[in-house]
């Protein structure tokens, strides 16, 4: 009785162990893929154009824009830029009827949108480059 069980179980064990390993590898692989194709699933996001290792403080590679988003030096912003030339609450991006708008929050050193100083609320197009302090952010909007 035990012998039969033992013989059956040895195959079962090998199968379980290999399916387990295979699933883990697959999960790890999917994780890697989601990091690489993250831009494919998102509608609107900001991409940091400066190479991350040249920035003397911590920043992410991309920031997803849900509806509203603020950029500034303070920790309560969604995009935190710890640069002394950036104001606490520097600028704001907001969604209105499918379009994204950018507004400078009266920052001391201003915001540059595509090489010209941002004066008023402006509409953002995909590919626009926003310069805050030393950081260049590209706005990307799909669909």
């Amino acid at each position: 009785m035990f012998d039969i069980l033992s013989v059956i179980f040895k195959y079962v064990f090998v199968i379980i162990i290999y399916v387990f390993i295979f699933t883990i590898i697959r999960m790890i692989y999917l994780d890697i893929k989601t990091i690489k194709t993250i831009s494919g699933d998102l509608k609107a996001y900001l991409k940091v154009l400066n190479p991350l290792d040249t920035i003397p403080y911590k920043m992410e590679d991309t920031y997803v824009i849900e509806d509203n988003l603020t950029i500034g030096r303070g920790s309560d912003n969604l995009v935190v830029i710890r640069d002394p030339y950036v104001s606490k609450h520097h600028l704001k991006i907001l969604l209105d009827e499918g379009n994204y708008f950018i507004e400078d929050l009266k920052s001391s050193n201003g915001t540059i949108l595509n090489n010209s100083k941002l004066e008023d609320v402006s509409i953002l197009k995909s590919g626009d480059i926003i310069k805050v302090g030393d950081i260049d952010l590209m706005f990307i909007h799909k669909g």
């Binding site: 035990f2 033992s6 179980f9 379980i16 162990i17 387990f20 699933t23 999917l30």
Partner: peptide
């Protein structure tokens, strides 16, 4: 698919442990 794959290894592990322990308990 995708949403549930995270649960598979833990279930396999559970199954493996239950089966192997019952086999050992029968043996012992």
């Amino acid at each position: 698919m995708g949403t549930n794959i995270g649960k598979i290894p833990i279930r396999l592990l559970f199954l493996f442990e239950i089966l192997s322990l019952s086999l050992i308990f029968i043996y012992r």
